[in-house]
Design a binder for these strands. Structure first.
Lengths: 141, 141
DNA sequence: CACATAGTATTAATTTACTAGTACAATGCA
DNA sequence: TGCATTGTACTAGTAAATTAATACTATGTG
Protein backbone atom coordinates (compact mmCIF):
# COMPACT_ATOMS: atom_id res chain seq x y z
CA UNK A 1 0.00 0.00 0.00
CA UNK A 2 2.66 2.54 -0.85
CA UNK A 3 0.98 5.86 -1.56
CA UNK A 4 3.24 7.01 -4.39
CA UNK A 5 3.80 4.10 -6.77
CA UNK A 6 1.47 1.32 -7.68
CA UNK A 7 3.90 -1.01 -9.49
CA UNK A 8 7.07 -1.71 -7.56
CA UNK A 9 9.96 -0.98 -9.89
CA UNK A 10 11.65 -4.40 -9.62
CA UNK A 11 14.76 -4.78 -7.53
CA UNK A 12 17.93 -5.33 -9.48
CA UNK A 13 21.03 -6.44 -7.66
CA UNK A 14 24.54 -7.54 -8.51
CA UNK A 15 26.79 -10.12 -6.91
CA UNK A 16 30.42 -9.19 -7.64
CA UNK A 17 31.67 -12.44 -6.15
CA UNK A 18 29.58 -14.73 -8.32
CA UNK A 19 31.96 -14.65 -11.25
CA UNK A 20 29.04 -13.88 -13.53
CA UNK A 21 29.66 -10.61 -15.38
CA UNK A 22 27.42 -7.69 -14.46
CA UNK A 23 25.80 -7.38 -17.86
CA UNK A 24 24.84 -11.04 -17.80
CA UNK A 25 23.38 -10.76 -14.33
CA UNK A 26 21.19 -7.93 -15.58
CA UNK A 27 20.09 -9.98 -18.59
CA UNK A 28 19.23 -12.94 -16.38
CA UNK A 29 17.23 -10.79 -14.00
CA UNK A 30 15.24 -9.31 -16.85
CA UNK A 31 14.63 -12.74 -18.34
CA UNK A 32 13.55 -14.08 -15.00
CA UNK A 33 11.27 -11.14 -14.34
CA UNK A 34 9.58 -11.80 -17.66
CA UNK A 35 9.39 -15.51 -16.94
CA UNK A 36 7.47 -15.03 -13.72
CA UNK A 37 5.35 -12.13 -14.85
CA UNK A 38 6.90 -9.17 -13.08
CA UNK A 39 7.60 -7.74 -16.53
CA UNK A 40 4.99 -7.82 -19.23
CA UNK A 41 4.85 -6.49 -22.78
CA UNK A 42 5.09 -2.74 -22.88
CA UNK A 43 6.68 -2.27 -19.46
CA UNK A 44 9.54 0.20 -19.34
CA UNK A 45 12.85 -0.94 -17.96
CA UNK A 46 14.84 1.35 -15.70
CA UNK A 47 16.77 3.89 -17.75
CA UNK A 48 20.36 3.12 -18.52
CA UNK A 49 21.51 5.91 -16.24
CA UNK A 50 19.20 5.26 -13.32
CA UNK A 51 20.05 1.57 -13.20
CA UNK A 52 23.75 2.38 -13.52
CA UNK A 53 23.51 4.71 -10.53
CA UNK A 54 21.46 2.25 -8.52
CA UNK A 55 23.92 -0.57 -9.13
CA UNK A 56 26.96 1.71 -8.91
CA UNK A 57 28.30 0.63 -12.29
CA UNK A 58 29.01 2.34 -15.59
CA UNK A 59 26.04 3.18 -17.84
CA UNK A 60 27.74 1.32 -20.67
CA UNK A 61 27.45 -1.91 -18.77
CA UNK A 62 23.71 -1.50 -18.43
CA UNK A 63 23.52 -0.43 -22.07
CA UNK A 64 25.31 -3.59 -23.10
CA UNK A 65 22.82 -5.73 -21.25
CA UNK A 66 19.89 -3.92 -22.83
CA UNK A 67 21.59 -4.22 -26.19
CA UNK A 68 21.87 -7.98 -26.03
CA UNK A 69 18.29 -8.20 -24.89
CA UNK A 70 17.27 -6.16 -27.91
CA UNK A 71 19.31 -8.35 -30.27
CA UNK A 72 17.42 -11.32 -28.88
CA UNK A 73 14.18 -9.49 -29.50
CA UNK A 74 13.24 -9.39 -25.84
CA UNK A 75 13.20 -5.61 -25.49
CA UNK A 76 12.85 -2.64 -27.81
CA UNK A 77 14.88 0.50 -27.38
CA UNK A 78 14.15 4.00 -28.66
CA UNK A 79 16.85 6.57 -28.20
CA UNK A 80 15.58 9.47 -26.18
CA UNK A 81 12.52 7.53 -25.07
CA UNK A 82 13.52 4.41 -23.21
CA UNK A 83 13.75 0.64 -23.25
CA UNK A 84 10.63 -1.48 -23.18
CA UNK A 85 9.63 -5.12 -23.01
CA UNK A 86 8.64 -6.16 -26.52
CA UNK A 87 6.06 -8.68 -27.60
CA UNK A 88 8.73 -11.17 -28.51
CA UNK A 89 6.63 -14.24 -29.16
CA UNK A 90 5.12 -12.55 -32.16
CA UNK A 91 8.46 -11.70 -33.66
CA UNK A 92 9.64 -15.24 -34.29
CA UNK A 93 8.58 -17.55 -37.09
CA UNK A 94 7.74 -21.12 -36.25
CA UNK A 95 11.00 -22.29 -37.76
CA UNK A 96 13.00 -19.77 -35.76
CA UNK A 97 11.19 -20.75 -32.60
CA UNK A 98 11.95 -24.43 -33.08
CA UNK A 99 15.56 -23.74 -33.95
CA UNK A 100 16.00 -21.66 -30.83
CA UNK A 101 14.44 -24.26 -28.57
CA UNK A 102 16.63 -26.91 -30.13
CA UNK A 103 19.67 -24.77 -29.38
CA UNK A 104 18.61 -24.37 -25.77
CA UNK A 105 17.87 -28.03 -25.30
CA UNK A 106 20.72 -29.79 -27.06
CA UNK A 107 23.41 -29.05 -24.44
CA UNK A 108 21.05 -30.03 -21.65
CA UNK A 109 20.31 -33.39 -23.24
CA UNK A 110 23.93 -34.23 -23.84
CA UNK A 111 25.01 -33.34 -20.33
CA UNK A 112 22.06 -34.98 -18.67
CA UNK A 113 22.72 -38.19 -20.60
CA UNK A 114 26.40 -38.22 -19.77
CA UNK A 115 25.49 -37.87 -16.10
CA UNK A 116 23.20 -40.85 -16.36
CA UNK A 117 19.84 -39.11 -16.21
CA UNK A 118 17.04 -40.76 -18.12
CA UNK A 119 14.62 -38.78 -20.24
CA UNK A 120 11.81 -39.19 -17.75
CA UNK A 121 13.91 -37.79 -14.95
CA UNK A 122 14.71 -34.74 -17.02
CA UNK A 123 11.10 -34.17 -17.96
CA UNK A 124 9.88 -34.59 -14.41
CA UNK A 125 12.46 -32.15 -13.14
CA UNK A 126 11.28 -29.66 -15.74
CA UNK A 127 7.69 -30.07 -14.65
CA UNK A 128 8.79 -29.42 -11.08
CA UNK A 129 10.70 -26.31 -12.06
CA UNK A 130 7.70 -24.87 -13.83
CA UNK A 131 5.66 -25.16 -10.67
CA UNK A 132 7.81 -22.45 -9.17
CA UNK A 133 6.82 -19.97 -11.85
CA UNK A 134 3.56 -18.10 -11.80
CA UNK A 135 2.07 -18.41 -15.27
CA UNK A 136 1.60 -14.71 -15.91
CA UNK A 137 -1.67 -14.31 -14.05
CA UNK A 138 -2.46 -11.86 -11.21
CA UNK A 139 -1.70 -13.08 -7.77
CA UNK A 140 -3.20 -10.47 -5.46
CA UNK A 141 -4.49 -11.62 -2.09
CA UNK B 1 38.19 -55.28 -40.25
CA UNK B 2 41.40 -54.19 -38.63
CA UNK B 3 43.28 -57.24 -37.41
CA UNK B 4 44.78 -55.65 -34.30
CA UNK B 5 42.00 -53.81 -32.45
CA UNK B 6 38.44 -54.83 -31.96
CA UNK B 7 36.99 -51.63 -30.48
CA UNK B 8 37.52 -48.59 -32.67
CA UNK B 9 39.22 -45.98 -30.52
CA UNK B 10 36.69 -43.18 -31.08
CA UNK B 11 37.53 -40.35 -33.40
CA UNK B 12 38.22 -37.04 -31.71
CA UNK B 13 38.40 -33.92 -33.82
CA UNK B 14 38.74 -30.20 -33.26
CA UNK B 15 37.26 -27.28 -35.13
CA UNK B 16 39.50 -24.24 -34.64
CA UNK B 17 37.00 -21.96 -36.35
CA UNK B 18 34.08 -22.83 -34.10
CA UNK B 19 35.04 -20.41 -31.36
CA UNK B 20 34.61 -23.20 -28.82
CA UNK B 21 37.84 -23.73 -26.89
CA UNK B 22 39.67 -26.98 -27.55
CA UNK B 23 39.34 -28.32 -24.03
CA UNK B 24 35.58 -27.79 -24.15
CA UNK B 25 35.29 -29.54 -27.48
CA UNK B 26 37.03 -32.54 -25.98
CA UNK B 27 34.71 -32.52 -22.98
CA UNK B 28 31.67 -32.34 -25.22
CA UNK B 29 32.88 -35.21 -27.37
CA UNK B 30 33.45 -37.38 -24.34
CA UNK B 31 30.05 -36.49 -22.91
CA UNK B 32 28.41 -37.23 -26.22
CA UNK B 33 30.25 -40.51 -26.63
CA UNK B 34 28.97 -41.55 -23.22
CA UNK B 35 25.49 -40.36 -24.02
CA UNK B 36 25.19 -42.54 -27.10
CA UNK B 37 27.04 -45.53 -25.71
CA UNK B 38 30.36 -45.39 -27.50
CA UNK B 39 31.97 -45.03 -24.07
CA UNK B 40 30.88 -47.17 -21.20
CA UNK B 41 32.03 -47.55 -17.61
CA UNK B 42 35.60 -48.76 -17.40
CA UNK B 43 36.66 -47.74 -20.89
CA UNK B 44 40.03 -46.07 -21.11
CA UNK B 45 40.26 -42.68 -22.77
CA UNK B 46 43.17 -41.92 -25.06
CA UNK B 47 46.23 -40.96 -23.07
CA UNK B 48 46.91 -37.29 -22.59
CA UNK B 49 49.93 -37.50 -24.85
CA UNK B 50 48.46 -39.60 -27.61
CA UNK B 51 45.39 -37.43 -27.93
CA UNK B 52 47.54 -34.30 -27.83
CA UNK B 53 49.63 -35.65 -30.70
CA UNK B 54 46.60 -36.76 -32.65
CA UNK B 55 44.92 -33.37 -32.30
CA UNK B 56 48.19 -31.46 -32.66
CA UNK B 57 47.71 -29.54 -29.41
CA UNK B 58 49.54 -29.29 -26.11
CA UNK B 59 49.16 -32.16 -23.62
CA UNK B 60 48.07 -29.64 -21.01
CA UNK B 61 44.99 -28.82 -23.02
CA UNK B 62 43.92 -32.45 -23.06
CA UNK B 63 44.80 -32.74 -19.40
CA UNK B 64 42.59 -29.79 -18.63
CA UNK B 65 39.65 -31.42 -20.37
CA UNK B 66 40.19 -34.69 -18.51
CA UNK B 67 40.54 -32.73 -15.32
CA UNK B 68 37.18 -31.06 -15.63
CA UNK B 69 35.61 -34.35 -16.51
CA UNK B 70 37.08 -35.81 -13.36
CA UNK B 71 35.84 -32.93 -11.23
CA UNK B 72 32.38 -33.64 -12.59
CA UNK B 73 32.83 -37.28 -11.68
CA UNK B 74 32.57 -38.48 -15.26
CA UNK B 75 36.04 -39.98 -15.47
CA UNK B 76 38.64 -41.24 -13.03
CA UNK B 77 42.33 -40.63 -13.51
CA UNK B 78 45.25 -42.53 -12.08
CA UNK B 79 48.67 -41.09 -12.66
CA UNK B 80 50.85 -43.58 -14.44
CA UNK B 81 47.87 -45.70 -15.41
CA UNK B 82 45.43 -43.69 -17.45
CA UNK B 83 42.03 -42.04 -17.52
CA UNK B 84 38.88 -44.12 -17.44
CA UNK B 85 35.14 -43.65 -17.68
CA UNK B 86 33.81 -43.89 -14.14
CA UNK B 87 30.53 -45.30 -12.98
CA UNK B 88 29.20 -41.86 -12.23
CA UNK B 89 25.59 -42.70 -11.59
CA UNK B 90 26.63 -44.73 -8.59
CA UNK B 91 28.80 -41.99 -7.20
CA UNK B 92 26.01 -39.50 -6.67
CA UNK B 93 23.46 -39.52 -3.91
CA UNK B 94 19.87 -38.91 -4.79
CA UNK B 95 20.08 -35.41 -3.39
CA UNK B 96 23.18 -34.63 -5.41
CA UNK B 97 21.57 -36.00 -8.52
CA UNK B 98 18.51 -33.83 -8.11
CA UNK B 99 20.58 -30.78 -7.35
CA UNK B 100 22.64 -31.30 -10.45
CA UNK B 101 19.60 -31.74 -12.66
CA UNK B 102 18.09 -28.63 -11.14
CA UNK B 103 21.24 -26.72 -12.02
CA UNK B 104 21.14 -27.94 -15.59
CA UNK B 105 17.48 -27.16 -16.01
CA UNK B 106 17.07 -23.81 -14.32
CA UNK B 107 18.77 -21.71 -17.02
CA UNK B 108 16.83 -23.52 -19.72
CA UNK B 109 13.50 -22.83 -18.04
CA UNK B 110 14.24 -19.17 -17.51
CA UNK B 111 15.34 -18.56 -21.06
CA UNK B 112 12.59 -20.62 -22.60
CA UNK B 113 10.00 -18.73 -20.59
CA UNK B 114 11.40 -15.34 -21.49
CA UNK B 115 11.25 -16.33 -25.13
CA UNK B 116 7.63 -17.27 -24.75
CA UNK B 117 7.88 -21.04 -24.86
CA UNK B 118 5.29 -22.95 -22.88
CA UNK B 119 6.19 -25.91 -20.72
CA UNK B 120 4.63 -28.35 -23.16
CA UNK B 121 6.69 -27.04 -26.04
CA UNK B 122 9.86 -27.50 -24.05
CA UNK B 123 8.95 -31.02 -23.03
CA UNK B 124 7.99 -32.04 -26.53
CA UNK B 125 11.24 -30.67 -27.91
CA UNK B 126 13.11 -32.69 -25.32
CA UNK B 127 11.27 -35.85 -26.31
CA UNK B 128 12.21 -35.19 -29.92
CA UNK B 129 15.85 -34.65 -29.03
CA UNK B 130 16.02 -37.93 -27.18
CA UNK B 131 14.92 -39.80 -30.27
CA UNK B 132 18.31 -39.06 -31.77
CA UNK B 133 20.14 -40.82 -28.96
CA UNK B 134 20.37 -44.58 -28.60
CA UNK B 135 19.48 -45.37 -24.99
CA UNK B 136 22.64 -47.26 -24.04
CA UNK B 137 21.37 -50.64 -25.12
CA UNK B 138 22.78 -52.79 -27.91
CA UNK B 139 21.75 -51.63 -31.28
CA UNK B 140 22.93 -54.34 -33.61
CA UNK B 141 20.89 -54.92 -36.73
C1' DC C 1 15.38 27.09 -29.72
C1' DA C 2 16.61 25.58 -24.92
C1' DC C 3 16.81 21.99 -21.94
C1' DA C 4 16.04 17.69 -19.64
C1' DT C 5 15.90 12.91 -20.56
C1' DA C 6 17.03 8.83 -23.05
C1' DG C 7 20.26 5.73 -25.58
C1' DT C 8 24.98 5.44 -28.28
C1' DA C 9 29.93 5.57 -29.78
C1' DT C 10 34.83 5.58 -29.04
C1' DT C 11 38.64 4.52 -26.50
C1' DA C 12 41.26 2.39 -23.10
C1' DA C 13 42.49 -0.09 -18.75
C1' DT C 14 42.10 -4.31 -16.51
C1' DT C 15 41.13 -8.85 -15.88
C1' DT C 16 40.30 -13.45 -17.26
C1' DA C 17 40.51 -17.38 -20.46
C1' DC C 18 43.06 -20.24 -23.31
C1' DT C 19 46.98 -22.55 -24.97
C1' DA C 20 51.70 -23.84 -25.14
C1' DG C 21 56.74 -24.84 -23.28
C1' DT C 22 59.02 -27.27 -20.26
C1' DA C 23 60.07 -29.92 -16.40
C1' DC C 24 58.32 -32.97 -12.68
C1' DA C 25 56.07 -37.09 -10.27
C1' DA C 26 53.55 -41.49 -9.96
C1' DT C 27 52.65 -46.26 -11.67
C1' DG C 28 53.82 -50.73 -13.59
C1' DC C 29 56.79 -54.10 -15.24
C1' DA C 30 61.16 -56.57 -16.66
C1' DT D 1 66.60 -50.77 -9.96
C1' DG D 2 65.90 -49.07 -14.59
C1' DC D 3 62.88 -47.49 -17.81
C1' DA D 4 58.80 -46.66 -20.40
C1' DT D 5 54.28 -44.86 -19.77
C1' DT D 6 50.94 -41.97 -17.66
C1' DG D 7 49.16 -37.81 -15.49
C1' DT D 8 50.70 -33.15 -13.16
C1' DA D 9 52.76 -28.49 -11.97
C1' DC D 10 54.60 -24.19 -13.03
C1' DT D 11 55.34 -20.47 -16.05
C1' DA D 12 54.37 -17.44 -19.62
C1' DG D 13 52.48 -15.42 -23.95
C1' DT D 14 48.44 -14.11 -26.48
C1' DA D 15 43.82 -13.15 -27.23
C1' DA D 16 39.32 -12.16 -25.71
C1' DA D 17 36.02 -10.44 -22.37
C1' DT D 18 34.58 -7.10 -19.17
C1' DT D 19 34.09 -2.64 -17.39
C1' DA D 20 34.82 2.21 -17.14
C1' DA D 21 35.77 7.41 -18.82
C1' DT D 22 34.14 10.48 -21.56
C1' DA D 23 31.76 12.66 -25.10
C1' DC D 24 28.11 12.35 -28.49
C1' DT D 25 23.29 11.96 -30.65
C1' DA D 26 18.19 11.50 -30.59
C1' DT D 27 13.49 12.52 -28.58
C1' DG D 28 10.00 15.27 -26.27
C1' DT D 29 8.23 19.56 -24.13
C1' DG D 30 7.82 24.37 -23.26
Amino acid sequence: MSPTVDKRPIQFSLDPKSGVPYYKQIILQVEFAIADGRFVTGDQLPTVRSLAVELKINPNTVARAYNELEIRGIVTTQQGTGTFISNRTIRLTEVEREGMLEGLIRPLITKAASYGFAMDEVINAIRDSYEGIEPRGEEKS
